[in-house]
Design a protein around this nucleic acid. Structure first.
Lengths: 204, 204
DNA sequence: ACGGTACACTTACGCTGTAAGTCAGTCAAG
DNA sequence: CTTGACTGACTTACAGCGTAAGTGTACCGT
């Protein structure tokens, strides 16, 4: 590759593409170099090490979050922030294989936005302290779980197989729940339902 | 090591010990063999491959969850189930580095218990469908987040440093939030607060 | 006493991240 | 215009990884 074309941003771009298409395990320095038409070791001129790339990947996810700064209604704002974070995570399933602490400045912007919206909504600081963690946890946890179901969705055709493997006598509720997933998922977006459950509670 | 002493359970035991003490990255087949006084390849007589070990690790966490089968009050029951899961995850931070889908039968028992408690609480099936995901998400997400703060707690002594690194003008809310963490964390267990927020909502 | 099998061993292969050294191109100062 | 430093590519090398494949031995049921 011609000199001067590479950059940290270009490296992270290529890394995202590989992780999205082939999974995080496929993302090796050699594979990444190959994608950029460069030897693996050349990447170290633009990136400290592989962990640095992982930090970059996580940051890219947080950058995609809509901070909803122009939104006046605090509940709508939090729905936009949390919802867009949820979608960003779903779009990049490898997000959950990386440490939660890897977010950089864009992560701080998201927290800042959430706290600001809570404050504008009149949530007192002591409650907002816990609320931020709970809302953040909802985004993380629900999204992580949804990744698992994404795989399960691919198995929809083998639904009967899946159900058969779950003992009917030992797990009646799980079976019924799985049946709901396959046959007649209840209406409504579970993510939003959960979010509203919390926001309703914060109002009181 | 004498023949016949090894077993899948013993291998997983040793793997947990290494992961807990030295981190998941330190858990290699050779390191694991060393801990058991055996060559790495010998482990393959008791375990299919490394992923099999990872499945075993995740299962051990789910086994620690209190299913609260004897609990008559459904809210107390869900507090016990979710709370014990939360504590089990915190005790084994490597849990979050492994795929969420790795849970085996013990994972199903946990879901079964949660759905049963919701049913006994009179939560209608359509709502329970979403509720289970939301509650599960809370357990995952809040716990994952808490792992990050566990590291942060270790940095308590450098609290001033940490705060200084966060621009006061760009992140006023984040700074105030961090100060709450370091100086005067609001009373109450955030995990339980969030759980009650949801359970309160489910009652309505 | 004696196969058979269970279980440990050794060797080897292709992968990984990255430390270290080399060398060509570019650009600024004399 | 020359020269010297710097940048950013290159090659080589190393230790460690998961695991496929083959070898040997000690025990157990017959």
């Amino acid at each position: 590759m011609a000199r001067g074309v590479l950059s940290r941003a270009a490296v992270i771009d290529a890394a995202i593409a590989i992780a999205d298409e082939e999974g995080l395990r496929a993302l090796s320095m050699r594979r990444l170099g190959e994608a950029l038409g460069v030897e693996a070791m050349s990447l170290y001129h633009h990136v400290a090490n592989k962990d640095d790339i992982h930090h970059g990947l996580v940051d890219r996810v947080w950058e995609q979050v809509d901070l909803a700064r122009d939104e006046t209604d605090w509940r709508a704002a939090l729905h936009r922030v949390c919802g867009s974070a949820h979608r960003a995570m779903l779009a990049h399933p490898w997000f959950f294989a990386l440490p939660i602490t890897y977010g950089g400045e864009s992560r701080l912007h998201v927290i800042e936005a959430m706290l600001a919206h809570l404050d504008h909504g009149g949530v007192p600081p002591e409650l907002a302290f816990h609320a931020q963690h709970v809302l953040d946890g909802h985004v993380f946890g629900y999204s992580w779980q949804a990744i698992g179901f994404a795989d399960l969705e691919a198995l929809r055709d083998q639904a009967d197989d899946t159900l058969a493997r779950i003992s009917a006598t030992a797990f009646p509720y799980v079976r019924a729940h799985a049946r709901q997933h396959f046959d007649s998922p209840p209406p409504g977006d579970g993510f939003a339902v959960g979010l509203d459950l919390m926001l309703d509670g914060l109002v009181r």
